[in-house]
């Protein structure tokens, strides 16, 4: 099993140890506001054509995670009273691509 690069808890607090990452291509990260973790907030995953693929609510620490496929993705965040923000990211099999966003 492959886990995220580095040691200790991932910044987002999202635990990947419970999943065999081998065949998975993960996009994970955190969303923050100037005041702390963005919660509640919704994170949308769009493919390289801009089509919606999936959406998750953030965890209480602002963390999120997607099981994607190798390639380019856009992560877009909706949060109460904030402008939506987005960022592109690429991932690959066996990799956790980390994204940190601020709304």
């Amino acid at each position: 099993m492959t886990v995220a690069d580095g040691c200790g808890a991932p910044e987002g607090g999202v635990k990947l140890e419970d999943t065999a990452l081998g065949s998975q291509a993960v996009v994970a990260g955190t969303v923050r506001t100037p005041d702390g973790p963005a919660y509640p907030a919704y994170v949308r995953l769009l493919n390289d054509s801009g089509d919606f693929v999936a959406e998750v609510p953030t965890a209480s620490d602002g963390g999120f995670r997607f099981y994607a496929a190798p390639g380019e993705w856009t992560v877009r965040v909706l949060a109460p009273g904030r402008e939506a923000v987005q960022q592109t990211v690429s991932t690959d099999v066996g990799k956790v691509a980390r994204v940190a966003l601020q709304v």
């Binding site: 996009v27 493919n47 693929v53 999936a54 997607f66």
Partner: peptide, 18 residues
């Protein structure tokens, strides 16, 4: 489902293990 699941690139929505 998403286009990625339809063409066979993903087996499940991307917030779930594939």
């Amino acid at each position: 489902r998403s286009p990625d699941e339809y063409v066979g690139r993903l087996l499940a929505p991307a917030h779930l293990p594939q």
